[in-house]
């Protein structure tokens, strides 16, 4: 049985696309046939993060509206087996994402893939609503920051009332909290909300904590999902999150700052 998982947040720039790319890649590395879809119509960033922007010929919107076959739009990842990308278009027409069209594409993808990861745009407009409507599970990407937590709460409310599962009275969309850009040092100083606070407020199970990490930017520079950067802490954290998504029990890491050497402490500059 294939699963549709939306990566969403309400707030913009919290790490949805980074996380969708990393988790889709991680699932494929674990042997599951996975496709990641860009729902951010008009902006289109997933192809850049996945490093396949020059291979885009047709897209999700062409499949919905222009009779293009799904196989003409799907891009097979060159690094990881079992992984495909369905890019979106830069059209300004927000109505391009028709519900029946989206449903048809998802139904067809279900025949071929185990996991369908939907990268939601920010906000609660059409693209965001379409990306979460058909979801079986949701990964709520949240930064340790008041406005992000508030928007995540709003999205949880929408998942519980406006998703297909809610409307049909089916079992609720399974919700996972993914805290990203976590800076353990600032948390320890009392400058940033800690994981426990966020969990207490949002009251959903934790899928993972991704530390603030410079490797995320470097990976995006070269069009590689950060999970493929073996030396990066963010990669380790995303791998743990993928394991938990697959039902394994893995202890949380990166909740404490790294021990600094004597010299680093001596020359410590304030942030």
């Amino acid at each position: 049985m294939s699963k549709v998982i939306v990566v969403t947040s309400g707030k913009g720039g919290v790490g949805k696309t980074t996380s969708a790319a990393a988790i889709a890649t991680g699932l494929a590395m674990r042997g599951h046939k996975t496709v990641v879809i860009d729902f951010d119509v008009g902006l289109r960033n997933l192809d850049l993060i996945m490093g396949c922007e020059r291979r885009v010929v047709f897209d999700f919107i062409n499949v919905i509206n222009d009779g293009v076959r799904l196989n003409q739009a799907l891009i097979k990842d060159k690094r990881v087996e079992n992984l495909s990308i369905l890019p979106t278009s830069q059209t300004k027409d927000k109505e391009a994402l028709k519900q029946e069209g989206v449903q048809k594409v998802l139904d067809e993808l279900k025949g071929e893939f185990d996991y369908i990861i939907c990268d939601s745009p920010a906000g609660i407009e059409r693209g965001a609503m379409m990306s979460l409507y058909f979801a079986d599970e949701a990964i709520i990407v949240t930064n340790p920051e008041v406005s992000s937590v508030r928007d995540s709460d709003r999205i949880l409310g929408i998942l519980n009332s406006k998703s297909r599962r809610a409307e049909l009275g089916l079992e609720a969309v399974k919700q996972h909290l993914l805290v990203t850009r976590y800076d353990a040092e600032r948390v320890n100083k009392g400058e940033m909300l800690k994981l426990d606070d966020i969990v207490e407020i949002l009251a959903i199970p934790v899928l993972g904590v991704i530390p603030q990490c410079s490797s995320v930017l470097s990976a995006s520079n070269v069009g590689m999902p950060v999970i493929l950067d073996e030396k990066s802490k963010a990669s380790d954290a995303y791998k743990d999150a993928v394991s938990r998504l697959l039902g394994e029990e893995v202890d949380l890491r990166f909740l404490q700052p790294e021990k600094k050497s004597f010299f680093e402490r001596l020359f410590r500059r304030s942030a």
């Binding site: 008041v146 508030r150 100083k189 009392g190 400058e191 940033m192 909300l193 800690k194 606070d197 407020i201």
Partner: peptide
């Protein structure tokens, strides 16, 4: 230094 995270949490709880 002021623990602003505590204040963030309290404000969020009331607002939400």
């Amino acid at each position: 230094p002021k623990n602003t995270a505590v204040e963030a949490k309290d404000r969020l709880k009331i607002l939400l």
